[in-house]
Each structure stands twice: as structure tokens, then as C-alpha cells.
Simulated scan of single mutants.
Amino acid sequence: MELRELRYFWTVAEEKNFSRAAKVLHITQPTLSRQIKEFEEKLGVPLFIREKKQLSLTDEVYFLKERATQILTLAAQTEREFEEQSKGFLSGHFSIGCVEADNSDTMAMMLEELVRDYPKVTFNIVSGTSDDISDKLEKGILDLAILLEPLNAPDFEKIILPRAEKWGLLVSNASSIAQKTAIYPDDLEGIPLLISNRSEVQSMLEIWRNKPLTTLKIVGTFNLIFNVFSLVENRTGSALTIEGATTNIQQGKLTFIPLAPRLKTNCVLVFKKKRIQTPLVREVIKRFNDAFKA
């Protein structure tokens, strides 16, 4: 399987039209059609469902498109990295993932300083869940990531960021517990709750309570807190989360109440161990190290 074949397939899948894809690829439509037909013959499966003027993927090849995206991204990244190193000066592009957390502004500050010092540097910020970002970092699609502990990531090195993230309960202002100044373990009994679907977070909460979560009334789980704001507002459940992920809530409708005893976790910059980093990524890591490494 050649990169050229994957690029042709991926472009047609994105454009959903041979004519538009051919223009993007700067080749003729008959050439593109022939290449796709030969690729289909090589794989032994049809790649597209042809309906009127639009194409769609067959069920069998959605995986191929996802894998093609990863391979083409890595190929482009490798070309950029080789070019950067051959030039011998700091320029180029890198990607960093970031979860919902208060320390996202720490990342912004570091990127601002980096681009100011090296105007030819560009970057891509990828937001998502810890699991999604960790997976992309593991596969080499991301160079760096800002994640929230607790983590089960033995293959990653980490730099702890300055502000610890405070855990608490996000509640509707109409809730009977909205006036509390702290939430103790027993306060959670009988309350409809929304919690993270990450097993590491659930284990941490069980240690904090000194009881299994099965004793609680958990009505749902989530991976991104943004998706449950309306559920909290409408009192479907109160959400156990970090304060830094609630900065964009609509004031006057929801309240964040810290847990007691205090429960705090760190945000960390992580990168893959033993990976040969580009000069640009090494510079980013060095700046975080100089600023925050204990």
C-alpha cells in the first residue's frame, strides 16, 4: 500500500466527489478514477458507494479512512521534522493536545512566548478527552499533551504544571445543596450524580470517599464536562468535576462547591519516552522544564 494511493483515497473520501478531489490533487479526473479502481482491485473491496453526484464510504472502509488519516498525518509530520533539522534553525510545526482544565491558560502563555521568540513556528491545539489525547500521543499524531492526573501512562514522561486542580460538585442553583460551602463524602448519598467515565478518576473518588462508588446514585457518566452543563442546570444530576473545567458555565445558574476533605490533582505536560523529538519540540519541553520542573 503506497502513500500516493492512500492520499488519493483519503482526498476522494473527504471531497465525496471525484472531480473536486482531482482538482485538490492537481491530477485529471480519469487518472484519479483509474487509480481508485486499481486500489479497489488491490484491496479486493469496493471503497465507495456511488450515488448520483456524491460518493459515500462503504461500511468496510471507515477504518481504512481513519488509518489513512493517521498515516498521512505522520508522513507530513516526518517531512516537516526532516526539513527543520536540515535547516538547523528553529521553525516548523508541532501539535499539542489539551484537556478541559484551568491550566489551559498556562499552555497559552507558553505558546505565546514561543511564537513571539520564533515567528516561523506554528502549532495545532487538539482538545479532547484524556483517553483520546493519550491515544493520539501514543500513536505519534500529537507531539505533546496536557493531561489531568490521575494517569496510567508508564510510557510518558511528565512535567507537573503549577496550579493544582480542585475537585468539587457542580450543582444547579435551584438544588437544595447549592448553599453549601463544601461537600463531604456523606453529602453525596442519595444525590443523582454525573461522574467521569475514566476508571482512574473513579478509583480516586472511591479512595476519597473510602467507599465504593456503587453505593452512590450515579445516573450517568461523561467524558467532557461541557456536555453535561444543561443536565446539571435542569437537575438531572450534579457533576463531580474539577473547578478549572467549569470556567465557561453560565453565571447565576450553576455553582461549583469544593469537596472536603480537599481533593486536588495536577495537570501535567506529557510526552512519549524514548521518542526522538524535533528541535522545536525539544525547545517546548525545555521551556516547560525551565519554568515548572521541581
Rank of each mutant, 00 (worst) to 15 (best):
L144K: 00
I133Y: 01
Y118G: 09
D102M: 03
M110W: 04
L148D: 02
I96Y: 09
D102L: 12
N152Q: 04
K139P: 11
D131Y: 10
M107D: 11
L147V: 03
K166V: 12
T122N: 10
Y118C: 01
L114V: 05
S86N: 13
D135K: 04
T122E: 06
I159V: 12
L151K: 02
K136A: 11
E165T: 07
E165G: 08
E112W: 09
L137D: 04
V121F: 08
F156M: 14
L148I: 00
D105F: 13
L144M: 06
N103T: 14
I133P: 07
A164W: 03
S86P: 06
V115K: 15
L148N: 03
S134C: 04
S104V: 14
K158N: 06
D102E: 14
A145Q: 05
P162W: 04
N124T: 14
S104F: 12
A164Y: 03
S127H: 13
I141S: 08
K166C: 06
A153C: 11
P150W: 02
M110S: 08
V115M: 10
D143M: 00
G97Y: 05
D102C: 06
N103W: 07
P119A: 12
D132F: 15
V121S: 07
I159S: 01
I96P: 11
G128R: 04
K158M: 13
S127P: 09
G128W: 01
T122M: 06
E112K: 06
S127C: 04
G97L: 04
D155T: 07
D132T: 15
L111A: 08
P150Q: 06
D132R: 14
G92P: 12
D135H: 10
R163E: 14
C98T: 12
S95R: 11
S86A: 15
I141E: 07
K166G: 05
K166N: 09
D143F: 04
S91I: 07
R163G: 00
K87R: 15
M110P: 05
Y118I: 03
V99H: 08
L137H: 03
K139V: 06
G92N: 09
F156Q: 15
E112H: 12
D155M: 01
K166E: 13
M107I: 15
D131I: 03
L147Q: 04
M107A: 13
A101T: 15
A101H: 06
A153W: 07
V126C: 08
F94S: 05
L114N: 06
S130L: 01
K158V: 02
K166F: 00
P154G: 09
E138Q: 10
F94N: 04
L147K: 07
E157W: 00
P150D: 02
E157T: 02
G92S: 09
M107C: 12
V126W: 08
F89Q: 13
L144Q: 04
E157Q: 11
